[in-house]
Design a protein around this nucleic acid. Structure first.
Lengths: 207, 207
DNA sequence: GGATAATGTAGAACAAGTTTCAGACTTGAT
DNA sequence: ATCAAGTCTGAAACTTGTTCTACATTATCC
């Protein structure tokens, strides 16, 4: 139906045992739980460890910093969102409209858990070089969601990829302004719709 | 020659005495100095206080948090940049080209002090609600720089302001990807040029 | 099944942002 | 000049992310 998108998952360096997988899952769950309550600040490493039933040292073995943990949490949530979004593809006629619709859907999902969104997005933009690989994974995941929404017949052109990059930039930055109370939901909507026009601009001619 | 832009400065709630103004200045200078050395992490409140010859408590009276301090540092630097940029206005024919040129000039300035850029930009995006007014000031300054570069004859339309917002989003987010080593300088250039096309898209028709 | 390396635990210790407090210094009004 | 209010200092205390250590548990390999 549409262009294929390769699975975007972690490279999974050393295979984890079952108990380890379970620990990892408990940690991510605790992280998301605490984040939903009070945002970035409420995710305190000691509390995450306790809630996950794991020693502090172990938590740090799995996730070498709070930012790593929250970025991994975001990966997790994004993966969910990607599959959810795929179930009901956007309805618009134009690629730009479909992308805007998809992002607004994602935005509404974030609005339901604004504190969680806060924790994840703040971690993402605060991440330094040591978290680059993980942040990159999140970025690829986001790109995949947008490309999916475009529903291209052919592989995207370089121009289209540039447009997608800019859309991602806008998406992240607009989220931040919303989370920090400097932009309304309506304003974010406008920004997303504005940037999505770039897609039309880079579409192969059509008439 | 071009549309007027109102001065964008801090509201300056209570007027400071001379000694206080001097203290504030020493603090900002120390902050920028330390940031230039080692980025965000190198700006340690105790060190800033010592370098500025001020007690820790005083530092916190002037700037209620590290993020406040760094955002104020950014205000300061942006103000410099704004006046510098105004001296040699961009040469392009189209507004889009002029904005892109201006932003690339700013980008090159940041490249000369990448650590300082790191500290300021990380603080900016990490800022929570308590810093909103200060972040807003930075945002207005950035908007002013971009509108200046557009060199409009008339006050900007709503569409143009939307485009400027998106450009700002892209600018900030692209900077972050560059600072965290996930995007090359060339890539940032492309992103800026890509988003600047939105300006042409929103120009009143011209032929 | 036992040696051994890797992983996990509990808890102390450390680092840097932030708060607090008692006392000294400025400032502004009278 | 003096008093009151506000400001600054120095130092300690507190919080939370991060690291370290000594020991227990688990996994792996022969």
């Amino acid at each position: 139906m549409t262009a294929e998108v390769k699975a975007v998952t972690t490279p999974a360096s050393p295979p984890l045992t079952e108990r380890q997988e379970a620990r990892r899952r408990r940690i991510l769950h605790a992280s998301a739980q605490l984040a939903s309550r009070g945002g970035f600040d409420a995710v305190q490493m000691r509390e995450v460890a306790e809630a996950a039933g794991v020693a502090l040292g172990t938590l740090y073995r799995y996730f070498p910093s709070k930012v790593h943990l929250l970025v991994a949490t975001m990966q997790d949530q994004l993966q969910h969102m990607h599959t959810t979004l795929r179930k009901r593809p956007p309805a618009g006629d134009e690629p730009a409209a479909r992308v805007a619709e998809t992002l607004m859907r994602a935005f509404r999902a974030l609005q339901r858990e604004p504190q969680l969104a806060d924790a994840m997005v703040r971690a993402l933009t605060f991440a330094d070089r040591s978290v680059s690989p993980e942040v990159d994974t999140v970025s690829r995941l986001t790109t995949a969601i947008i490309l999916d929404a475009m529903g291209l017949e052919h592989p995207p052109t370089a121009q289209q990829l540039s447009a997608v990059r800019v859309i991602e930039h806008t998406w992240h930055s607009a989220l931040i302004t919303w989370l920090s109370g400097r932009a309304s939901i309506a304003q974010v909507k406008i920004d997303i719709e504005t940037v999505c026009r770039l897609i039309d601009l880079t579409s192969p001619e059509k008439s």
